[in-house]
Amino acid sequence: MLNKYSTLLLLGLLFLVASCGKSSYSTFSKPDEAYKSAQEIAELKKMERQQRRLAKKSGLFSKTEKTDGLVKIKTKPARNSRSGKDAAYSSRKVETVISTARSYRGTPYKFGGTTRVGMDCSGLLCTSFQSIGVKLPRTSSEQSQFGPTVSTHDLRAGDLVFFSSTQSPSNITHAGIVTEVRNDNEIYFIHSSTSLGVKEDNLFAPYYKRNFIKAVRPNI
C-alpha cells in the first residue's frame, strides 16, 4: 500500500505528464516490464523533459521521437546543406548558363573575342556565366581553379572542362562547359574551337580525351 509521500509523488508525476506532453514512461510499471520504483520513473521522465528543453532551446532539432523508452533526437539539415529549393534554383541557373552558351553556336573563333562577331573559349565561359551574375576569371588557366575538381565519373551539366594541347596540367590551353551527360562514354560540352567556332563535342572523342586535363564545378 502506498504511503502519503509516494501518493503525492505519483500525483505530481501525473500533473507533469498532463502539462508537458506525453512521456515514454507510464506512471506505474506495467506487468510485462522490469519493475521501476516511483522515484526511478520520476528520474527517467525528468531526463526526457531536459532533452526536450535542450532540443527546443538550441534550435538545432526539429522534433524528438521516442524509441524503446529513450528519446531519439532528429536533427535539422545543416545550414550549409543544399535544400530542395536551393538545388532547383541552382539547376535553373545551370540551364541559363547552358542556353546562353548554346545561343552562340556557330559564332566564329576569335582570340580575345566575347561577342557574336567572334568568341574564344574562355570568353564563351565568361559570357555564359555573366547571364547569372557570376564573374569568371578571363583566362582558361585561371578558370580551371574556379571550383573544386570533379572526376569524369561525376560530371554533370554546368561543370567546366579543361584541356592542354601539350597535355601538361600546368599549361591549360582550352576550356568548355558540360551541357549533357548521356552515359559513361557520351558527355557533351560546348566550347569555341579554333577551326569551327562555338560547337558541342563529346568529351570522349579521341582528340579531347587525349588532351583532357581536369574538370571543376563552379559553386553556383
Rank of each mutant, 00 (worst) to 15 (best):
L125Y: 01
H174Y: 07
K76E: 12
E33R: 08
S131A: 08
E200A: 03
E48T: 02
K57T: 12
T127A: 12
S128P: 06
Y207T: 10
S24H: 02
G112D: 00
Y5N: 15
T100P: 01
L160G: 00
Y109C: 04
T152N: 04
A157H: 05
A38M: 11
S168E: 13
S103A: 05
K85F: 15
E48K: 08
A55G: 01
G158F: 02
K74Q: 12
T107Q: 07
Q143A: 00
M47Y: 10
Y35S: 02
R210I: 11
L13H: 12
A157R: 04
V178H: 00
C126F: 13
D159I: 00
A42M: 10
R102L: 08
Q143N: 03
T67R: 14
A215Q: 03
A101I: 00
K199F: 11
R182I: 13
T114K: 10
A157W: 05
T64L: 13
V178C: 00
L160D: 00
I177V: 02
I98W: 05
Y25A: 06
T100K: 08
P169Y: 01
R182D: 08
D32P: 04
R79A: 10
L11I: 15
S164Y: 15
A78P: 03
S164M: 15
I73W: 12
G147K: 02
I41V: 07
V97P: 05
R105A: 10
A18D: 03
V134H: 10
P77Q: 01
R92E: 13
L125R: 00
G106C: 05
L9A: 05
Q130L: 09
K199P: 04
T64H: 14
S165R: 10
K93N: 07
L60I: 09
Y104F: 07
T115K: 01
K110G: 11
K85D: 09
E142L: 03
L14T: 09
H153Q: 14
T149R: 15
K4L: 13
K199L: 13
